[in-house]
Amino acid sequence: MKIEELQDKANEIREIIIKMLAGAGSGHSAGALGSADFWTALYFGGVINYRSDEPEWEDRDRVVLSAGHYCPVLYAVLAEAGFFLKEELDSLRKIDSRLQGHPHKSSTSEVEQLPGVENTSGPLGQGVSVAVGMAMAAKMDKKDWRVICFMGDGEQNEGQVWEAYLNAAKFDLGNLTLVIDRNNIQLSGRTETIMPLEPFKAKLESFGLRVIEVNGHDIEEILQAMKMARVMLDRPTAIILYTTPGKGVDFMENKSEWHGKPPIEPGEAVEALEEINSIKTYE
């Protein structure tokens, strides 16, 4: 897929996210919209291996969503990639749905779960440890599959995240790529007000991670970084993804109040969809 096509696909994903959240009546808007370019590049830019018709394919790369509240974007790209029918997206957060408010993985086969979801997440900091465990297992078994773990910047407040980084560095987990959405907001305000992270890059480096900084809305840059991370196997890579939360919807952009709410006031969803539509470039 060409870069321009990916860009348009990302905006289609944004439309799906708005519709899902409006339909659900609750959920997190800003992060899902802000990271839509990354998720589109990840699933449609040829940088990971997966089979949507065989979700448990043994040699697939494992995409671990640690910041579970981003799940509308994960569900949207999974449906778009063919893991399940797009009609099912309407069931987000509703009773008897496989699209839980935060992703649910169950290794018990009798439990109905959404194909393509690799882990349970929501309580922050947990997915990154799961990702580390997967990377350690792959290394033990000399498997070539990679682990990509997506986190939020607010999530970095959790001590468990830093435990996991120490762990990843100790075992030189070069098969692990950590992607951190640096959008500068968390639930109740700016990250630097609630719990300052800066100098964030230096902190990550001092924990033994290789850091690549990326403009999270530049698909070419994202793909480049993912490809680099894939070949640098001596130690884990962290990609700091600089994004605008709420990207594509002017009234949401850079506003922490949109971290944890959906567009449900009259006219909000319509306005958001019109705006997203107007930025499509390649048709």
């Binding site: 671990v64 290794s107 350690m136 297992a137 078994d141």
Partner: peptide, 20 residues
Amino acid sequence: LGIAEQNMMGVAAGMALSGK
């Protein structure tokens, strides 16, 4: 895994999801 029990539990889950 060092004195980091929270991470240890998650790592175990990741390993179990990978067949261990």
